[in-house]
Amino acid sequence: MRVKKSPGLISPTGVIKLMTHAMMGAALGLVFSLALVLSNPAVAKLLNDGGSQAVVVFALTLVTTFAIGATLTGVVFILAEDKQS
């Protein structure tokens, strides 16, 4: 008789794994936004002309995009890992 396993995403360990993926994505978004500003003077000029709100919107947009992408990738990895075991 097979024992039913709870899905990996619903368990507390799965939630911690997803949060870890989201935090890694947010960190990558911050690094990417800094690299983009430092390597492309046109972006730096646009942000300088836009004021402080433009910088916040630019950084939050990249951080959110990367965090969502990393979280969705984490979901795929966790589901694939559960299928293998």
Rank of each mutant, 00 (worst) to 15 (best):
L47R: 03
D49P: 00
V63P: 03
N48D: 13
A70T: 07
T65R: 05
L60W: 07
L62N: 09
I68C: 07
N48E: 12
L72M: 15
A70Q: 12
G50D: 11
G50Q: 09
N48I: 06
S52Q: 07
T73G: 08
Q53D: 14
L46A: 08
G51A: 13
T71W: 07
T61G: 14
V57S: 09
Q53L: 15
G74L: 03
G69V: 11
G51N: 08
F58V: 04
V63T: 13
I68H: 01
V56N: 03
K45S: 13
G74W: 04
N48V: 06
T64F: 10
F58E: 03
G50L: 14
S52P: 00
T61E: 08
T65Q: 07
D49R: 07
V76F: 09
T65V: 09
T65H: 01
V76T: 08
A54W: 05
L46H: 00
L47G: 02
V63L: 15
Q53V: 14
G74T: 03
S52T: 10
G74A: 08
K45A: 15
T61S: 12
N48L: 11
L62K: 00
F66M: 14
L46E: 10
L72K: 04
V75C: 14
G50K: 08
Q53G: 11
A70K: 06
I68M: 13
G50C: 12
V75H: 03
G50T: 13
T71V: 11
T64Y: 00
L72Q: 09
S52V: 12
T61D: 07
A70I: 05
N48M: 10
D49A: 14
T64C: 12
T61V: 14
G51P: 04
T65D: 01
D49T: 12
A70F: 15
L47C: 05
T73E: 09
L60M: 15
F58K: 01
K45I: 12
K45F: 05
V56W: 08
N48Q: 12
V75K: 06
L47V: 02
V63H: 02
G74D: 03
K45T: 14
V55L: 15
V56E: 06
T73H: 11
L47M: 07
V56D: 06
L47I: 03
T61H: 03
L46Y: 01
T71C: 09
L47S: 01
V63I: 15
T61R: 06
T64A: 15
A54C: 10
T71R: 05
L60P: 01
T71Q: 08
N48K: 11
N48F: 01
A59Q: 04
V76C: 10
A59M: 14
V63R: 00
F58S: 06
T71I: 04
G69A: 13
G74Y: 00
F58T: 04
V55T: 09
K45N: 10
T73F: 13
S52C: 01
L46T: 12
I68P: 01
A70C: 10
T64H: 00
T65L: 14
V57W: 04
V76M: 13
L46I: 04
V55D: 05
A67P: 04
A59T: 10
V76Y: 10
V57H: 00
A70P: 00
L62H: 04
I68Q: 06
L62C: 06
G74C: 08
G51W: 04
A67W: 02
Q53S: 14
T65G: 11
K45P: 00
T61P: 03
V57N: 06
D49K: 10
L47H: 01
A59I: 15
T64M: 11
L47K: 01
Q53F: 09
T64G: 09
